[in-house]
Design a protein around this nucleic acid. Structure first.
Lengths: 232, 232
DNA sequence: CGACATTTTGATACGTATCAAGGTACGTGG
DNA sequence: CCACGTACCTTGATACGTATCAAAATGTCG
């Protein structure tokens, strides 16, 4: 059974706006769901009837064309919100990239609950504004940066976002070493490149001593200043 | 003096959430400002202390790098909201593309007012969610489309967004003919292309009989189906 | 150990940027 | 009203970066 009071994202997700009683009410309309890597919960173009909070794992928001081109338009992490409340269709799919846990609501239920809880809407508004800002920043990368600049920017972004938020680390410094939750193909789809170009840029950075690549998914930033220069 | 009750975007902007009394209160903290084309009200990286509603005209949100590359990350029209309430810095400038009128608020004033008026926040939330959705759709264009596909998609989008919302047109059908509020350079900065490439694609479409170009800024879609095919 | 998926590397082609020049519309002052 | 200057747009020639096609290498899992 769902139990918000022990939820690991309780204090970071939009639910943090609610007190104990309100949380109990939210409990009644939500349910947890486990996803295995590759599984989707929302499909591009569908009438969006679900919204959710991410509890654990990483999910991608993506659009695909008939001819197989795919673009990842967003990546969500624990405590992030998924879906389109208050009407309107979602124009992208939502797919688990790693095994994941989410807290699901039917949109109708969530809409009703949100209407009665302005503090929840306020949290959601702040989160949405931040996400819009982040997305716009990403547009500059897609529209104007070279492959090398794209990968450098991406790695720097990852080193900041993959900081484990669970434990109360004193410093929120970016990581020097981390495991990407993405395959090379995912990285390519995030950066608007092909997998071959991504691979070549990784190799180049390794050759130049900017990063080390201990294993397929692992990245160690060995010269952050140089990486920042490459990101332009 | 500001007078919301006669404002042309009164029923479309987020202010539509307010009744007459509330509107009077909002009146007290807002002021109108006229902008001439090229004038900015928010600068990239600045501590964002202003928010605003667009009353008339078109404005761009853009980011620029040192080396002169620019990417337009959003375009706003009458009734749209500008700025970043509730903290956080804006990472893009806001600049008038045409002469424009806006309704300005200091962020602190607006934040306070919004806190007391959940209905206003709700409107803003819906608007922000829609804008996020639109922005994500644009990412696919920037990351995965060819120059020809980009321009075709752009023209179709324009034919829908430039429909004059003022008069109560029975049908909201897309326009067959319209004047772009943008120069070729603007179009290039929106699509992540150079001005030369944009120009060549315009010429190609004209040659193929998909569009006619009566004057520099005017576009007439002569074969919509073909244009839709080009947009992929 | 062997089969499969993923990643890397290589050779080549294509699309768009870049550099350069010419053309067209537009506003200003003669 | 026309000549001129300026900004904007178009066209052309070439270079460069990334995609594409192909194959080899590496890692992963039964």
């Amino acid at each position: 059974m769902t139990d918000c009071s022990t939820c690991v994202v309780r204090n970071r997700a939009i639910c943090a706006a609610l007190d104990k009683e309100e949380l109990d009410a939210l409990n009644l309309i939500g349910r947890r769901r486990t996803l295995t890597a590759g599984e989707s919960i929302i499909w591009e173009g569908d009438e969006s009837v679900l919204v959710a909070n991410v509890i654990d794992g990483v999910l991608k928001l993506s659009t695909g064309s008939q001819d197989g081109r795919e673009q990842i338009v967003g990546v969500v992490y624990p405590a992030d919100f998924i879906g389109r409340p208050f009407g309107g269709n979602t124009s992208h799919s939502v797919t688990a990239i790693t095994d994941a846990k989410v807290c699901l609501f039917s949109r109708a239920d969530f809409d009703g609950f949100a209407n009665d809880h302005p503090a929840l809407e306020h949290k959601l508004l702040r989160r949405t504004l931040t996400e819009l800002e982040r997305t716009r920043k990403w547009m500059t990368l897609l529209g104007r940066k070279s492959a090398e600049e794209k990968l450098a920017s991406f790695l720097l972004d990852m080193s900041e976002r993959l900081v484990d938020p669970g434990c109360e680390t004193v410093t929120d410094e970016p990581l020097a070493e981390f495991d990407l939750p993405f395959s090379r193909q995912h990285v390519a789809d995030i950066l608007g490149l092909t997998i071959e170009t991504v691979s070549r840029q990784f190799t180049k950075m390794k050759r130049d001593g900017v990063v080390a690549l201990p294993s397929r998914r692992a990245v160690a930033i060995t010269n952050r200043t140089a990486l920042e220069d490459l990101a332009a």
